[in-house]
Design a protein around this nucleic acid. Structure first.
Length: 483
DNA sequence: ATGTCC
């Protein structure tokens, strides 16, 4: 199939590019790219735009197949992709959500200033490392019974607060209040459940982390104040998902869908785009299992959050004050939402894969104090660089189905990063810059080296300049705990 | 991302 080149792309407006439907006969909608010219030149080098075009062929896709500026190649769909399908006849595709179902980020705000607490950072990073198991296949201290696991899958973060891990108020500060009601544990296989039994409270490996940051600067004082952020304040970021359980849910249902797809007369240009109609038996079973895995992830982040608070208290005691949940967002998920398409409000199945929901002011689900300014959008950068807090806008509803970027985005594959990065040297360099790295392996550090990622600042500048989110604060890391 | 190939 022909590769997408610069000549195939037209500029619609500043930061918005389009590959027209005429590019390939099988496209049902155009493909759109949110990027600066510089980022586009980098994006065009890999296969992610061809993947974007492939997504535009899927049955029921509305308006456009879209990618955010942090786009890179993924399984079938590009990571950084957003695709909305007609409800309920359009398809649902596991590749549009990703293997790590409800991978996401939670941001905790402290009452301490970095300037008064520099000396405590090293001890804090060691304490966090001791409280939060990290690494491939690593289990935690909580061993669930199968009955308890079914409760977690049905209740999400509610299970955590019902069992003493955190407070009930925190649920209001989570996307979907930490629970998708369509979850059904019956469609999560025994193998998937077995993998999850001891994984609550663990971050896993790869780009997952617990990070200590401070607010380096604020861009919008009104919104920063509303979110409770101020310059110099210490905050903590938790980035993880549904671990082996979610991975197994994806594996199981992808296998079933591959066998069922032809039965529905669906042909896709890449087998990794396997999909079935949302309202089919296989579509419903996957959706209910995906919701259950998403609930597991929310419960996981909530329990990690509780462990982070324990570590915090051990270091700072009573003077450490509260760690308040600022917000928790998913960036690998499919949601049923209402969106206005060609002037008509309609229900769609929004696939977000490496894309964060970014709903604007007035959104009902938001806690009252955030309602006037929009949903917090949390953008973690790569290891040792910066992260950002943004606020969703009404423009995101018009342009991107209420979505925004989710991070810096890879520019090197894991294997290329391992070849190019020198992990021990990098760890020492970060240390010299005042960033403590607690990692299970040098391999993990090499794969996550900053050179393996795009510049998060340029990615954030695109979403901000295009108006789909407003910059609120920039966070600078002082300690990172990784798998 | 992932008991990195049941």
């Amino acid at each position: 199939m022909k590769k997408v080149q610069k000549a195939h792309i037209t500029k619609l407006e500043d930061y918005l590019w389009e590959i027209p439907k005429s590019f390939r006969e099988d496209m049902r909608v155009p493909a759109q790219i949110l990027a600066s010219e510089g980022l586009l030149d980098a994006i065009i080098k890999d296969r992610s735009l061809n993947q974007l075009v492939n997504v535009a062929t899927l049955p029921g896709i509305k308006k456009a197949s879209m990618v955010m500026p942090d786009v890179h190649e993924g399984y079938g769909f590009p990571i950084g992709g957003v695709a909305a399908m007609d409800y309920p006849e359009g398809v649902i595709s596991p590749g549009g959500i990703g293997y790590d179902i409800n991978c996401g980020v939670q941001l905790l705000a402290s009452q301490l200033q970095i300037k008064d607490n520099r000396d405590a950072v090293e001890a804090l990073s060691k304490e966090l490392h001791a409280h939060v198991p990290a690494g491939m296949g690593k289990g935690g201290t909580i061993k669930l019974t199968t009955e308890q696991l079914d409760e977690v899958l049905a209740e999400g973060a509610n299970w955590a607060v019902n069992h003493g891990y955190g407070t009930r108020e925190s649920l209001s500060y989570m996307e979907s209040h930490g629970k998708l009601n369509d979850a059904d544990p019956a469609f999560v296989s025994t193998m998937a459940k077995n993998r999850g039994l001891d994984q609550l409270g663990t971050i896993g490996s790869g780009n997952h982390f617990v990070e200590v940051d401070f607010v380096e600067k604020t861009y919008n004082n009104t919104i920063a104040k509303t979110y409770g952020l101020q310059k110099g304040q210490i905050v903590l970021l938790i980035h993880t998902g549904s671990r082996g359980l979610g991975h197994q849910v994806a594996t199981d249902h992808i296998r079933k869908m591959m066998m069922a797809m032809s039965h529905y007369g669906i042909n896709v240009p890449d087998r990794e785009l396997t999909c079935v109609p949302f309202n089919s038996k296989e579509g419903q079973e996957y959706f209910k299992a995906m919701c259950a895995a998403a609930n597991f992830a929310w419960c996981n982040r909530q329990i990690i959050s509780w462990e982070v608070k324990n570590a915090w208290e051990n270091i700072f005691g009573k003077e450490g004050g509260d760690l308040r949940l600022l917000y928790d967002v998913a960036h690998n998920i499919a949601k049923i939402e209402m969106h206005t398409i060609e002037g008509t409000s309609r229900k769609v199945i929004v696939h977000r894969k490496g894309a964060t929901r970014a709903f604007g002011p007035g959104f009902k689900e938001l806690p009252p104090e955030y309602k006037g300014v929009g949903q917090p959008v949390i953008i973690p950068g790569s290891m040792g660089t910066c992260s950002y807090v943004l606020a969703g806008t009404s423009k995101s509803h018009e342009m991107t189905f209420g979505s925004c970027c989710h991070g810096a985005g890879r520019r090197l594959s894991r294997s290329a990063a391992k070849r190019q990065a020198n992990a021990p040297v990098l760890k020492e360099k970060l240390r010299e810059q005042g960033i403590f790295v607690e990692a299970g392996s040098f391999r993990g550090i090499a794969e996550e080296a900053p050179i393996a990622y795009k510049d998060v600042g340029s990615v954030v500048d695109v979403v901000s300049a295009s108006g789909i989110a407003k910059k609120v604060a920039k966070l600078k890391p002082v300690a990172v705990i990784k798998g």
